[in-house]
Write a protein that binds this DNA or RNA. Sequence first.
DNA 1: TTCCCGATGT
Length: 755
Amino acid sequence: MSSKPIPPPPPPHLSISTYLRRHRLSHRHLKHLHAQIIRRSLHHDPFLLTDLISASFASGTVRYAARLFRSLPEPDVVLCNSMLKGFTQNHLPQLALSFYVTEFLELGFSPDGFTYPYLLKACAAASDAALGRQVHASVVKADGDAFALNSLVDMYFKCGLAEPALRVFRGIRRPDPATWNVMVSGFLNLGDVKSAMEVFDRMPYRDVVTYNTLMSAHMKNGDLEIARRLFEEMPERNHVSWNALISGLAQNGRNDEALSMFREMLDSGFKPDSTTVLAVVSACCGGTYLPDEDLITRIVSLAESSLNLVSVSTALLNMYAKFGEVEEARRIFDGIPEKDVVAWNAMIGGYAQNQRPADAVELFRLMQRECGDGVKADEQTMVSLVSSCGQLGVLSLGEWVHAFIEKNDIKSDIFLTTALIDMYAKCGDVDRSIELFQSMPVKDLASWNAMITGLAIHGRGGEALKLFSLMEANAIIPNSITFIGLLNACSHGGHTKEGLELFESMKARYGIVPRIEHYGCVVDLLGRARRLDEAHELVKSMPIEPDLVIWGALLGACRSQKNVRLAEEAASRLVELDPTHDGNYVLLSNVYASLGDWERVESVRAAMKANQVRKTPGCSSVNVGGVVYEFKAGDVSHPRAGEIFAAWDGIVERIKPLGYKVDTGVLMKNILEEEEREEAVHRHSEKLALAFALICLEGDESKVPVRIVKNLRICSDCHNAMECVSKVEGREIVVRDRNRFHHFTDGRCSCGGYW
DNA sequence: TTCCCGATGT
């Protein structure tokens, strides 16, 4: 169903013909006009019908144009020429050629001066040199004009035949500018730059097109200096010259130069078109930040005024999304009247890349509702959607999307399959990832990386290392992402020795400069292996300024090993680096509390107040019966809060016999009374999610796992409790926390204490 | 209504 309004009729001061020629009209609008033509009994007017057919071809509705043609009792040569043009214009040169053979000639028409250029263009586009030669004979017989001869030269070049092209050229008595230009671009298209330059040198006059052709050829070859020189020395320039310069610079990564040439173009009074805007936006995207407000305003006003094209808007939308301005991207998206699949993909992908997976999924649903048959989701849509499912960690949603892909015959190419591997791993079903990985006929680096990272977050370090050996055996060169996965796999799997060796070989053998993420992994690795001094040395000797993650890893290690001095340093650095984050204060306070230094505990509390610390509330979601429920820590506002709290208390009673004892050590000591602290621990979001799921699943014999996703790391008390519950309930519990997966089965967790 | 130059957005 379409809610688009009926388009307005042409204003009275214009004839329908003029209106058709002046505007680019949608198919819907054309049908409306056609109806008017019939109502006014004008549908036998051949001139009007020719205009209507041309407009239909321009709007891409080829079948409609063909139907209109057949509705005319007496087509003429002009109309047939338009048909030839229209088919080729719509990238259907074979249809143009078969139209020529089976209709044009059959109807008894002879080609006129306009027929040859269209026809030869179709031959060139279809690479049909055989038919081209026949047309050549016909051109000779009919003593064709300059247009026909130039088109012949062009056709032979585009069919890859330089010799016949040269023969035709030599027979041309007075080559015109177009002739020379066809020669230059002909040789360039064959990759013969030398011959092209020879022609250029022999030319009696060079027009702006000649310069443009050569300039963009040099741009493509990366010969920017030559291209620049040609631009400087050309006697006159048109907007194509500027476009070739700007887009050439942008494609060669010279984004700032591209932007400054754009400014010069505007100052010189040239009117940018959609190509200009696309090149400029591409230059902006290549940069590290959005250009200044003034330039953006100019680009946006250009894009919004005369060039209201979906391609331009999409490029602009994409630029905002790339720099994290998702709301602005959405504003542009909402303003696109006829969104195509690329526009939808850009916006859905924008949400996915900006960690807004729920919005991505919602927009996809809107796409399904609004688009009917007009716009169909494709591979690109699915990559973003699958990635969003991974971010959400909702297995059932991911499975639904996978089924959607198969039901709609969307091709699972290497990118999409890799996205599925990543999604299944992030949704807790890494075995499914392995199946997909093994089924891939061709794997690229990203596929290997996804699989290694997937194994890593599930603590299956040994398998990740084996996979890496296989990867090396297959001569796939790892990159820095591979090593983040591997180092993570080692630290989550307790493979200290292998991890340190990998870190060395990454630098020595593969020449990869470690990024801060790599250092983080190694600090973590050493910390878990109780090699605190080495970890500290590494932090001090790193060539990069340590960040929150590094100090956090070190602090984590100090806590478990009661190294108070180092812990104090790490925790104070954490507070320095992010004074608005509550967790850092809690950690620092706990260090002082463990020393019995209540004075400092008090000062941390004061600092916390003074800095207006933001709390990141713990938040967990759980999927029951295909619906995702969200829980915030201590959330009393939940409609079933009382029931859920009571259920948890019941669970506690049942797991006490297994040795569960509430552990409040995770909370800020000396700030809350012991009773309050217990209360707070019992209301952690993952516990509420679990209790809720168990209420819903009461009496369920299928024993499907409970799958919980948490935004922060799971605390040690919740971890203990989950182990016990998995035993008394005889049900697997899968928790994805900020770092990794925990599979709780029969009283044990798959992480084996490494988390 | 005709030939030659720039680019096609995720």
